[in-house]
Design a protein around this nucleic acid. Structure first.
Lengths: 343, 343
DNA sequence: TTGTACGCGTTATCAT
DNA sequence: ATGATAACGCGTACAA
């Protein structure tokens, strides 16, 4: 004997029962399968609405072996670059029927591993990752490629060869442009504040920057180079150290805008004239860089463009299972010099 | 006859077969059910690892009728307040075993409805929402409460009574504090740039602000009041209009920092002295407000604190199904005046 | 055009 | 301590 629990979830079986048809018919009708007559389709849909039926993605996913969910691991949601990236990615994927599970590693390798494992069991249809600052091993992502789940790194990508799709900014060129620009401004004593070299973006910016200086016959003074997490606190420490010696730099290239902003504030506090005595460059074109005075010369990474490319690649791969294994050349998103008042 | 597809997904049945035990035993062993002996548990786990088994959340969710996924709908991920909120919420929920599906409405009611519907079918265990700017009807959320899925609004909450949990900032008080502060600074001719009143936060800030002025015997000059989406472009338009008449205001209360920043930049361009000729207040304590010069007096909304309260409420409700229907009083997160150089 | 029958992977329940 | 079985809700080959 069947009870009628009033608030229980209705399934397609309940609809079928109520209508005297089979569950298969209901399923097909709801999915607009052309093999169902217009009449029954309408009848079914009305009944479904009437009974408060809702599609069960969990059952559907199980059956179809696809969740329509894409996993995203990002160092921090609140970083300007990533927040814009997420916005754009979400806006591209949503209309295509994909939901985004957004997770943040907080720049901890351990958390990143944990998240990878969780998303792995969650059967995401694809995983998109921007690596934590000190991630140098990638085995926690092996499962995805082994099981044929598309894996894509963007921005902070593996520094060693790894089987995955890659979309990155042209960080080498960003460093190069920055170096060229400072040299064009006739800087001779250039300081450099970078993130740790375990992270692809800082590694490549450093290479490009070094190359630019080398072209001009300059080399980086190791006393004036800092490699650490690019927080405001760390920036102030390095800046104090930088200006405590007898010889002062005439330029600073900071590998993010948080650091560049700190440099401007530090200079203001110390009465250092910008750009006359000190030129400053940042990286990312964070809104703060344009709002502070003097506004900071920086490098735009075009996060929206990067998200579009990531979305495009994902959708292409997800549609076409065939080429899931063809990891063609990395995609490289150009960068742009934004000239402002600090140089 | 069973084929051995090498790359096929292994299930607990495969493990059971390989070990000569039942699937139930495997399931229990993997879930650390105490009714399984230490020996078999170990045996099973080893075999599972060896066979490359991974837990299937989809099947598990179907069986358990819970997805361990929490849905989040936010106007825009890239708004400072929300990006910080998301960071904090995620950091609280992740360790408890919940994943966050982050979606953005782009402040479009239609998108919000679409997202609600999708998340509804996705069987999220709970839904957290900050409403779009012009959402005044809430029927697209009815399904959640009807089916007993916890629904929680934060920040931008319904303006009409609606059965859901609510965690909000003290926007009335924020407006009041702002008004009191400007009056204490002896402002007499106060302009006001607000978001649309369809949105709870702007409505309440307006009420608080109006009340503060009324206490001082002032009333808002309607020519100096603007209600529109708080973008930089709209701000500039309103500011130009504001200063085109013969009588100029001596203070502006802007209901977000984007607008306050625009006001400072506009004043700079027009040669208006701040704070002598014009005092400016913003809202949110966006990093830009502290970086611009002069730094802007604003109201801090404590997004992290709000996220903690939301997480706490969610976890409590998700653990204790019993009280899923008790929508006790709204939680109100205090706000703080951040006094800077523009007042 | 519609129905039948079964599988997807996991777990609760009852039995041993 | 472990096994056998039956759901969970949906989609699809195959049959009618």
């Amino acid at each position: 004997m069947k009870e009628n629990k009033p608030n229980a979830e209705k399934s397609i079986v309940d609809i079928a029962l109520a209508l005297g048809v089979s569950a298969a018919t209901v399923s097909r009708a709801l999915n607009d399968n052309p093999r169902i007559s217009e009449a029954t389709r309408k009848k079914v849909k009305e009944k479904a609405k009437e009974m408060g039926y809702r599609h069960n993605s969990m059952a559907s996913s199980l059956r179809n072996r696809r969740s329509n969910i894409i996993g995203l691991i990002v160092p921090r949601v609140s970083m300007y670059f990533h927040s814009v990236f997420i916005t754009a990615l979400q806006n591209k994927l949503q209309p295509e029927g994909y939901n985004l599970i957004v997770c943040q590693s907080n720049d901890s390798v351990a958390v990143e591993q944990q998240l990878a494992s969780t998303l792995y069991s969650s059967r995401v249809d694809a995983l998109v990752v921007s690596l934590a600052l000190y991630t140098e091993e990638y085995h926690h992502f092996d499962g995805f490629t082994n099981h044929g789940t598309p894996l894509l790194f963007y921005d902070r990508v593996p520094t060693k060869s790894y089987a995955a799709y890659i979309v990155k900014g042209d960080d080498y060129r960003g460093g190069l442009i920055a170096g060229d620009h400072l040299i064009e401004m006739e800087c001779k004593k250039i300081a450099y504040i970078s993130g740790p070299l375990s992270c692809s973006i800082y590694k490549e910016r450093t290479e490009g920057f070094t190359h630019a200086l080398a072209k001009a016959g300059l080399h980086l003074n190791t006393d004036w180079c800092f490699y650490h997490e690019l927080t405001a606190e760390n920036a102030w420490n390095s800046l104090r150290q930088l200006f405590s010696g007898k010889e002062k730099p005439d330029a600073i290239f900071a590998s993010n805008d948080t650091t560049a902003v700190a440099a401007v504030q530090f200079s203001r506090e110390q009465g250092i004239k910008i750009p006359q005595e000190l030129k400053i460059m940042g990286y990312s074109n964070d809104p703060r860089s344009s709002i502070i005075s003097p506004a900071i010369t920086t490098i735009d990474q075009h996060p929206t463009e990067m998200a579009h490319r990531v979305a495009h690649k994902l959708l292409q791969v997800l549609k076409d299972k065939r080429q899931a294994q063809e990891y063609d050349a990395q995609e490289i998103v150009p960068v742009t010099l934004i000239r402002r008042m600090t140089t």
